[in-house]
């Protein structure tokens, strides 16, 4: 089964993810900050990572940069989620294999983004 890691510090957003992804054919792990996320990615290789950008402590974009420095995560697809529009984060495209998900999103939008990104090797 494919593994999905979500790093999101907003508890309410976590609830939305849980609600929307319930019963989908992949394992979902949700952590509340970048530090916990770091621990998780050391344990195993996820097939897809969803990152909130504006988080307390290490922000999503910095976490993303750290992720790409890990040789095992050079190619893993990443979805960046934020209430701000894509323009603000265009610079992260340089880090490769990333797409953007604007909040709010509904279940269909989230699932189509995930299925598109799963196994995406750029």
């Amino acid at each position: 089964m494919k593994e999905l890691l979500i790093v999101e510090d907003d508890l309410e957003m976590q609830e939305f993810y849980k609600d929307m992804l319930e019963g989908e054919p992949f394992t979902v792990t949700i952590v509340s900050n970048a530090e916990e996320g770091q621990k998780k990615i050391k344990e195993k290789i996820y097939n897809l990572v969803i990152l909130d950008i504006l988080m307390d402590g290490v922000t999503g974009d910095r976490f993303f940069a750290l992720l790409r420095r890990d040789s095992r995560y050079k190619e893993v697809p990443v979805i960046m989620a934020s209430a701000l529009d894509e323009k603000t984060y265009r610079c992260f495209q340089a880090l490769g294999n990333v797409s953007f998900l604007e909040k709010p999103f509904n279940k269909e939008r989230l699932l189509s983004e995930i299925s598109m990104r799963f196994g995406s090797k750029k």
Partner: peptide
């Protein structure tokens, strides 16, 4: 502008998502 936008858009986004839920 980014901060204010984020501050205003985030709760609206969550309200929309709650309605969707």
């Amino acid at each position: 502008v980014r901060d204010v936008t984020h501050e205003l858009k985030t709760p609206v986004a969550k309200i929309e998502m709650a309605i969707d839920m």
